[in-house]
Amino acid sequence: MFVSRLLANPALGPLTPLQREEQIIQFLHVNAAALAPTLSTPGFFPGASWSQSLSLLLAALVEEVDVALMPRLDEILDRMQFGFVALLRPQAAGGERVRSQIREYLRAVLRRMDARRVMTGPLAAISYGFVDRYCDQMWARKGYSHFELTKVQRLRLGRDEVKAMIEATLLLKPIVCSGSSATAGLAEHASGVVQAQYAERVVAAAREALSLAPDELIRSAANASVSFQENRYIEATARIAAILSWRCRSYQPNMRADRGADSPDKSWLSVARRNHRFYGFDVKMIDELYSIAAENGW
């Protein structure tokens, strides 16, 4: 009841289910001292310690969020075109089977709290149409990102297939949490980046669970958490997914720019440009996205 009402708070209204969940978890941690006395009263969890109360609250929170999250994921997966799978690997399984396997994989991996945290940005990026928004412009400009996708990564795909692959990369970004040491690896890096060697191990481990998915996709999803500073050869789809994922982690759809302020995307990308080493972003790609945002008033 308490969790339901927290989730229904108008301040969280426009956010995605996972953004709401993350906000509430942060709120519980930050306000532990103020909440603990009240939550141990008979009205909530009588006699329970703060850690016990927190565990119960988090379990209830996840259960409650999943009510909205799982249909949202299904909706996204149902809408996605997996035609790119056949174009990448002609002998691979059909799109429907890949879709089904990814669905099952996500349901499993999203039981982990760290995976849910990694999924916050990707879910928002897909939900708010960021892939469409920026990829359409990249394609129209035929600049750096387009070159990286088509010439360096050598994707022989059309625009819509590339967009679908980036969305699939985003959806599978939580595979970095599938390794046994994943949590420790993520916790060490506030920016969420993992080492390239670790990503290699994740790819090897994920091949089993995502046996029908093409290797390019799994590798792209794992490398979306690898710093471009560490590995200059990571896929362009992974680099785009990394940027959009971080962009949308804190994205507020109804945010309006004050008079005298730059637009939200332009501001975020400008800050990201200065922090590109910290987050492991490709600075040239950030520059191009910044130009797109500036030209379109985003």
């Binding site: 301040a11 942060q26 709120f27 920016s191 800050v271 200065r274």
Partner: peptide, 19 residues
Amino acid sequence: LPMKDRRSAASADGFDLSM
């Protein structure tokens, strides 16, 4: 702003809910 952003990523202290 870049410093705030890095700090926010590290401590995850940017949220909409208050007591």
